[in-house]
Design a binder for these strands. Sequence first.
DNA 1: AAGGAGTCCAACCGCTGTTGT
DNA 2: GACAACAGCGGTTGGACTCCT
Length: 394
Amino acid sequence: MGKGRAPCCDKSQVKRGPWSPAEDLRLITFIQKHGHDNWRALPKQAGLLRCGKSCRLRWINYLRPDVKRGNFTKEEEEAIIKLHETLGNKWSKIASHFPGRTDNEIKNIWNTHLKKKLPLKNCDSTSGDESKESSITSSSSSSFSSTPACGKRGSDQTELGHDHFDEESAPAAAKRPCNNNQLIIPSQDDDHEVAKDPKDQLVTSTSTSTTSPSSSNVSNVSNSKTQLDVSRDYPHQEEENYQMDNLLFDFEGPCDVISDILQEVNKPDSILDDHKSLDDHDQTWVPQLEGDYDFWNMFDSLSDAFLQQPNDQLVQAVLHNSEPCHNSINFGGEEYHNKSEIENRDWFRFLESELGLEGNDNQNQQAIFYQDHQSLAMEEKPEESDPFLASFSN
DNA sequence: AAGGAGTCCAACCGCTGTTGT
DNA sequence: GACAACAGCGGTTGGACTCCT
């Protein structure tokens, strides 16, 4: 054993900076298939030149299927302010009350918007009730320096119109936590907080690591333990098919394209079997996906010709391909009833073209993709305020 | 139109807490 | 108890973008 703590990764060997769409897809595909049991080993297994920490951050803050993007509603902002009042800079705890929101996102919104609002709202009415400061957990007080004394709100718990929260009104979580406006309301003693969301309880029941609400509690594909267990317990093809089905459990509705992609990973039994090996260190089975060069090279070539789309579109295409779209759209004489159909068609067509199986020329396919997605962007529904949040703010 | 200032946010860094040996 | 390994958290940074002059 060497002295001291080894660095998490060799900084000279890892890529840094913004993630490319191809890297995102590699990460998504790998996690969908294998979960994230070990972030440190994940980049190697997935063939990513990234540090595990970076992969984890990217997944949690951006790629998780249930991550909610877009502006914060007024209700959410007010709730954040109130939670910050109680919890201080415990961003992950605050984030745990906003399924789909990440601690990083909340931290950003606080630093960029809410922190500025506070002095305006409070300095006129509450004249520095500094005694309340002590109620903030000591760990958070250090970073409160950016919020002056007047920024710390007084004890007027009713400013938001609520002395308590109605936990009963929280809607039951769906299998997929799409109800992202749902708030999980803090108990007075947040340290004794239990999962109030059935989804959390589900995860808690199957995962030994529930300390990070922004990751494991919220992600429903991140229960890597069970997924890896499955893959370890069922190393044969039949069981791999079973595993594939499980991996796709999150994708309701058409998932042909995802399935195709993942089958590309799964398919070459001879390759995969040849590359299954025991990890040098922990002697656990790890898939050596980096050996599947054809597949990943295809991804990389996609990144050059096609994946320069904004990440959002690609990620949404992969992860939210079941999202309903109530308007049918007509493109090129074909009617598509939802976003996923169009996206699946685009993916399929492009993969066809990449594989030389298509009838049309490549540029046409890309042009169709760009055109369709521009149209889809216009179709995006404005976010509706959630009744539960509305009740919170009233 | 140009460019400086301000804003936003994804990503990084370093520390802490937890777990296993 | 000591130590190593790891995940997670909170603070900070840097680049892209927008606004203003």
